[in-house]
Design a protein around this nucleic acid. Structure first.
Lengths: 139, 139
DNA sequence: CGTAGTGTCCTATCGTGATAGAACAGTAAA
DNA sequence: TTTACTGTTCTATCACGATAGGACACTACG
């Protein structure tokens, strides 16, 4: 499925769901008109309390990204795409900035920070390539 | 003073204090034998509850980074430097990884992520340069 | 001595994120 | 209609971070 929860992320579960829905809409994985997983279904899949999913969906509905069809489910609105495309970069940029600011205030040289980032970035690339290649061999 | 609190950081206040003490020790800003600000003093300076500082200092003491001199204060231990130097990169790397992982799972291209990071990194460099140059002119 | 500064410990309250479990109204299909 | 889904709402409980305010033992200084 599209969503997954990372407990060590630093983000609240409901917030992770909110962001992942937005990202999925922004990337076209979740097109307008498409229905999101039902509250109980997603809660079960993520091994999370239904009320946590409810909160995430309620926030997304309040932002106009999802709309309720009573008795049927929640689907992605038409305006959602533009909204989410714009917000995706903002949300990610904000988090990136916080981390880089902490690294900088720890008196690390910019070069050392860049090295750390590049290191983790290539690690990500290798992981993605490995996944596409079907073989998940890791150290 | 050395420490500052960022409310939008995503980190708990006590955790920010813990990390900043470690970073200060790692960078030599806080050498062994040096005393950290008193609980009440730091709490006042950060506009934070004394108990929050207590928790941070208690954690640092439990890790052997600070040691108490009864009736006098807390000072940095001898072993702290090596400990903190090693942990600084680990702590930062971990946070960086989480952010990059979220960016990657949002289906952003590695190149786009790299661009975002580079963007914020140069922004940091410009800010630091501006500060050193005394003039804080910003757009 | 007393005073002022240390760290330490304690109880209590608050907000928030998360869990648990129940109930209700609406829709779809057999 | 009945059944099985939807979202929505509600109360209760818990953990955790933070706040507030008080108390105690110790040390340094005058």
């Amino acid at each position: 499925m599209f969503f997954s929860i990372n407990p060590t992320n630093g983000l609240a579960i409901f917030d992770q769901i909110v962001r992942q829905v937005k990202f999925a809409v922004a990337s076209g994985t979740l097109p307008p008109g498409e229905m999101v997983p039902s509250v109980r279904e997603l809660a079960k899949e993520l091994a999370v309390n239904p009320n946590t999913v409810v909160k995430a969906y309620r926030d997304l509905t309040a932002e106009g990204i999802l709309e309720a069809v009573r008795g049927t489910g929640l689907n992605v609105t038409e305006d959602a795409v533009a909204h989410c495309e714009k917000e995706r970069l903002t949300l990610l940029r904000e988090r990136i900035r916080h981390v880089l600011e902490e690294a900088h205030s720890s008196r690390l040289e910019t070069g050392e920070i860049r090295e750390l980032v590049e290191d983790e970035l290539t690690r990500l690339e290798r992981a993605a390539k490995g996944k596409r290649g079907k073989k998940g061999a890791d150290s």
